[in-house]
Design a protein around this nucleic acid. Structure first.
Lengths: 310, 310
DNA sequence: TAACTGGATTTGTCTAGGACAAATAGGGAT
DNA sequence: ATCCCTATTTGTCCTAGACAAATCCAGTTA
């Protein structure tokens, strides 16, 4: 059958699958000569499937901090070499996690939930997030970028992980009257699993959490803050976000939400930043979350006290 | 402060919030004279906030089956009149559901989960989906389209509903060796809650479910089918989908997945269709799901038998 | 009445190449 | 190191045109 025709992708499909805007794809082609699609009968771009792999490698390098002009025009060979260099210290996974990935590739993925639940019980919720969920998500992203894991398997893994996280989150009993945290991502970041990891850790620290899910527009988030008056707003940023718009959003938030609300921001998109607005607590890795939370609790209880005294 | 400036939206924001493509917004402006954005200093479109309301009303009418040429140029007055006509039979909600919506607007939304869980227990899972989840999602969409519910509240409601559905889904014990169902939506449909409703109903009928989450590309879905060999593939379509591409996708699926796999399709986007590929079982409303499922089970067990006999 | 057919119209998405401001790097001075 | 300034890079937006796929509509047939 017409394999070659079936492997041709429209600009819309390429844009969706790679996360690169249509305009950007066109301008890369103009400036760097890649990607270089064929044309269909209508004169429209028609991307051969193998260019997707190269695009994925490029995405990976961009995430790692390289600039488009430096990596987009690169030959496939140079590209893979560079990829290998930048993904050196990935290291090994816990054998139990390898088992999860194996199971994912098998024909009967329903056992994955059981495996994950066992890990949850064995490690406890906190270690489960740090030592199982986060590494699995990372590894899956890596495998996808290499082209060695189909997207659907990443979806499947994410679903299973979120299911188990859901269960763990609601297994935590929250004392009433605690501090409340609003969790969300801004538009452009569709991945909700990072939020759920943070949500679980927050609940373990005794916070009451309100998860808005992904991609809340900035003005809506501000509305939500005025309506719900959370003590803390927690945002997750992936490497998809550009630095400056990210900073602009944070600054606008800082300006428009009540003074006493604490802003915390985490995710890969945050880890590469140097300076940040003063009020924003930066969580560069999951390990720094708990100390930051305790600091917030101390600070808030002082506020509480001074409020009562004053 | 500069309220008027704050209420100006870029084409990207309008596109994201309304779900209408940027190209479409530009061509509507050219053809129908609406929306009619101002321009910023850079010469870029800058949409006044009130045009969003009109756009939302237009979206609503398009979903109801009107054509762009007929409703986009309409005056605001005529627009609202038409909206009222087409949303006549919405009827009342169960008082318990009204309570949920009230709570949503209040300052303490964490009690919503408890309310929903109570409904789940009281009604049982099946009735919960039909009489609580579906009406709530509908009503929230309606309120959003009217501009009387901020988006973040819809997100919040969806999150709470999905949380409870999650719990209900995993509370159902599945006998091993049953028929398995792969659930997902195609690109363009980001809402996963419809899938979860169906997933719960499926599990109640004894199916083993594998939920891939939203927006699985077609080729990935085909890969997943070959790898996982589910007995049934269930797809959910919203009114966002165009008829013809929808049909094309279904036909391609029908062609490329194994003969014995049953395809079922549901959602608002499906309800308006007349003819469909033969192998696809159409679920126009949730009530027709259970009978269809029983038919599938009968059919499959016959296949099983004849396979064993042959 | 209902289903089908063929032609006319509507509609979304693509294209090209230009433009520009915001984002970043690089170099030099403090 | 840190700050500032300039040069370059980069994503997104612009216009206006084109076109095939989707849809409607009127006329015809069972």
């Amino acid at each position: 059958m017409g394999e070659s025709a079936a492997q041709r992708l429209s600009i819309d499909e390429v844009s969706r699958d790679s996360g690169i805007g249509k305009d950007t794809l066109r301008v890369w082609e103009r400036r760097y000569g890649f990607p270089q699609p064929l044309r269909n009968a209508k004169g429209e771009r028609s991307y051969p499937g193998e260019q997707m792999n190269r695009l994925r490698a490029i995405c990976r390098l961009l995430d790692a901090g390289h600039r488009p002009g430096a990596v987009v025009p690169l030959e496939p060979g140079a590209l893979t070499r560079l990829c290998e260099v930048s993904s050196d210290a990935d290291g090994r996974l816990n054998p139990a996690l390898d088992q999860v990935l194996e199971r994912l590739a098998g024909q009967e993925p329903s056992g994955i939930r059981a495996l994950l639940l066992a890990l949850l019980v064995e490690q406890g919720p906190e270690a489960f997030v740090r030592q199982s969920v986060a590494p699995l998500v990372n590894k899956a992203g890596q495998l996808w970028a290499q082209g060695s894991m189909p997207i659907y398997r990443e979806h499947l893994l994410t679903q299973q992980l979120m299911g188990v996280l859901h269960r763990a989150i609601h297994a935590v009993q929250i004392a009433p009257g605690g501090l409340s945290v609003l969790l969300t991502t801004l538009p452009g970041e569709p991945h909700a699993i990072g939020l759920m990891m943070v949500e679980l850790l927050l609940r373990l620290e005794g916070f009451d959490t309100i998860n808005l899910g992904a991609e809340t527009p900035l003005d809506q988030l501000i509305n939500a803050c005025t309506d719900l008056q959370p003590s803390v707003v927690a945002l997750s940023f992936s490497s998809l976000h550009k630095r400056a718009p990210l900073l602009a959003s944070l600054r606008e938030l800082e300006e428009k939400i009540p003074q006493e609300t604490v802003l915390i921001a985490g995710g890969e998109g945050i880890a590469r930043l140097r300076s940040l607005p003063s009020r924003v607590a930066v969580i560069k890795t999951l390990d720094t979350l708990a100390p930051a939370l305790r600091a917030i609790k101390r600070q808030q209880s002082q506020l509480q006290v001074s409020g009562e005294v004053g």
